[in-house]
Design a protein around this nucleic acid. Structure first.
Lengths: 212, 212
DNA sequence: TAAATGAACGACCGGTCGGTCGGTTACCCC
DNA sequence: GGGGTAACCGACCGACCGGTCGTTCATTTA
């Protein structure tokens, strides 16, 4: 099983384009993405892009997929190393905010930006984003339900409601961080989640005492 | 003091254009707004728009101003009829969600959409939005401080933090309402705020018992 | 009634957009 | 070493973009 150098080259190009596309989309949106600019930025030709994706919409879908992978690698998977229960919920939120803080993406969060862009624009991109968000929401809900089963959270916890609130705090952080002061926004987002989890936790000592 | 019919006509046109611009911007964003489409929609010529605004950026600024006015009329001012304190805070949040529910704007919320669009795009529009948001944030904070002074909220309430959380719940509602189910999103947004206010209120009876 | 004014129009500009097409280059396999 | 194939390129297209210009028309003013 030898490696085809041509295909490897194509894979490298695809990866580079998608990384760039994810980053740029956090600034100008998925639709604001111009294929010509994207190509120029990467030192390739515009027509070269069409060799990999048949249309702009194709590229947009691939970009969403890449962003999902990135989020999984940078946020979700690391958070799963935390112990089951309320600590894992907190780890997920904390990691997420840390990811925004890292400035790895200039606009902060790909999904926040793109969901607002496409939430009222019917099409396959919107549908894909809706599916992704539903899966994410279910995932957080499952973590919360697990925390209830583990006895970390009060038995009468509304896990869906909790997932909504955690989502709110993170989403707002990424918006306010770019419009006002980042440090303040992230502190609010962490504090809000910590307070909320503490009121629901059976043993608040599982959560960090206060924020640095 | 007679009325100049020509100027009155211009005023009518300007108002119609801006109303339409606010509505469309909630769908396609302020930059996604095309002057040609906007003109066609309203049955006027594109060049006619330039008689009222010198550039697209000028029109964008005027559109922001119009949206502020609309929000003031539909949300802020009505909420001020509620009694000072925690009831007024709740009224503001409830009215805001109701405004989103009304579908008066197809995209739900002008500012949510546009803030995400311009938060990482330097320029006069972004600056204007940042100023508007700061004023709004201060306004909510002042309502909360007033509620503390009135004895409605616990004396150790972090009013800025509260303002952040209320903002979060509303912002997320408008996003999720268009991506998933509106009813569910709005219920989460109201429930979250109500729960939060109740934990801080000295007399929870001032708040509605539960949601319809 | 004639001059002045403000709103609105159609034609048009340079530029950019997404997308197409006919190559050229470089690598793989027989 | 020759044929096939995948990556990539430059030239080009029609559509649309924001914006300008000269003009028309209704109304106000002198």
């Amino acid at each position: 099983m030898t490696i085809d150098g041509r295909i490897a080259r194509g894979d490298r190009t695809r990866a580079a384009v998608l990384d760039r596309a994810v980053a740029r989309a956090t600034e100008d949106g998925l639709d604001g993405l111009s294929l010509g600019q994207l190509a120029t930025d990467l030192g390739v030709s515009k027509s070269g892009l069409f060799a990999h994706w048949r249309s702009k919409e194709d590229l947009q879908l691939a970009t969403v997929e890449r962003a999902e992978q990135q989020f999984l690698d940078q946020v979700t998977r690391p958070a799963l190393t935390a112990p089951r229960g309320v600590r894992r919920l907190w780890a997920l939120h904390d990691r997420r905010i840390a990811f925004y803080e890292s400035e790895l993406l200039p606009g902060g969060c790909f999904f926040a930006k793109v969901q607002f862009e496409f939430s009222v624009r019917p099409g396959v991109v919107r549908d894909r984003l809706a599916t992704t968000f539903t899966l994410w929401s279910d995932f957080v809900d499952n973590l919360a339900r697990l925390a209830v089963r583990e006895g970390d959270l009060r038995a009468d916890t509304d896990t869906r409601q909790l997932a909504y609130e955690l989502e709110s705090f993170a989403l707002t952080a990424v918006m306010q961080s770019r419009l006002l002061s980042p440090e303040i926004a992230y502190r609010y987002a962490r504090r809000a989640a910590l307070d909320r989890l503490r009121t629901l936790a059976t043993d608040p000592a599982l959560l960090p005492e206060d924020l640095a």
